[in-house]
């Protein structure tokens, strides 16, 4: 396997129709580490996250201009197929969204099954087991793999969604406030899992919870917005310790210390 390269974002502007939502993001995201994005609501951090695997294109009117390089390849190159981008940059959403028509096993194998790829029974079993183990869910569900995925608890559903994502074997996993709908115990389980996952994957996580950012991430980026109708900016990004103890920017300090947001 090739040595992992950072994700390079250069001068990225994101629009909703005529409205410039996020302006001029330049950032390098380190491989095999956790990068947290924090900031007040509506600052564009989730929007930015979605542009890392072109999921923003699902939203009518949304488009991005600029460059996002993953493994040295610009995903906004006209010859790049967004479907292939998403196979290499997975995403976990705010609300756990297992497929209601599928069993736990089929949910994990969804990336294979939905793509009509042929896979032998034993290879599928292996893949499901590895992905569920990777998501720390195997022991809880190994006896009921054929039960519907919707029958799990909220935290288990979210880990099922993570298992589903890593079963596709991406390089990068994007997480959009993955714990915001969960109770503290489930949140802890997911945070532990994020620690393990960074051995293998580049993780970018958007969170509202600054404690969470400080617990799970190696680096933290702060997004802010000057006012309603103005575009969001990446104010600064640095090692998490630095951001939370000695931020370079006044805005960051105000936000961290709870003066607004």
């Amino acid at each position: 396997m090739a040595a992992p390269q950072p994700i390079n974002v250069e001068d990225l502007n994101i629009y909703y129709g005529d409205f410039l939502a996020v302006e001029g993001v330049d950032v390098q995201i380190r491989p095999r580490s956790v990068t947290a994005l924090i900031g007040p609501s509506g600052c564009g951090k989730s929007t930015f996250l979605r542009t890392l695997n072109r999921m923003h294109e699902v939203i009518p009117g949304a488009y991005a201009k600029g460059k996002v390089e993953i493994n040295g390849e610009n995903i906004y190159d006209s010859r790049v197929d967004p479907v292939n981008v998403r196979r290499r940059v997975g995403m976990v959403f705010q609300k756990a969204n297992p497929f209601p028509t599928m069993s736990i096993r089929d949910n994990v194998l969804a990336g294979v099954k939905l793509n009509n790829r042929r896979i032998s029974r034993s290879a599928a079993d292996d893949l499901a087991e590895r992905a569920l183990k990777g998501a720390n869910l195997w022991n809880e569900v190994k006896d009921r793999l054929d039960k519907p995925g919707m029958g799990l608890s909220g935290g288990q559903q979210q880990r099922l969604c993570i298992a589903r994502t890593i079963a596709v074997q991406p390089e990068v996993v994007l997480m959009d406030e993955p714990c915001s709908a969960l109770d503290p115990i489930s949140t802890l389980a997911i945070e532990d899992l994020i620690h393990e996952l960074k051995q293998e994957y580049t993780i970018v996580i958007v969170t509202h919870n600054m404690q969470q950012a400080s617990r799970v991430s190696d680096r933290t980026g702060f997004f802010n917005i000057a006012g309603t109708g103005k575009p969001g900016h990446l104010i600064e990004i640095d090692d998490t310790d630095t951001i939370f103890t000695n931020p370079a920017n006044k805005e960051t300090e105000d936000y961290i210390s709870g003066r607004f947001g």
């Binding site: 396997m1 993953i70 010859r79 790049v80 197929d81 292939n84 196979r87 290499r88 074997q169 991406p170």
Partner: peptide
């Protein structure tokens, strides 16, 4: 390792 392949596609 599908990762090493290009993301290019027919579009």
């Amino acid at each position: 390792a599908p990762q090493t392949s290009s993301m290019r596609g027919s579009g």
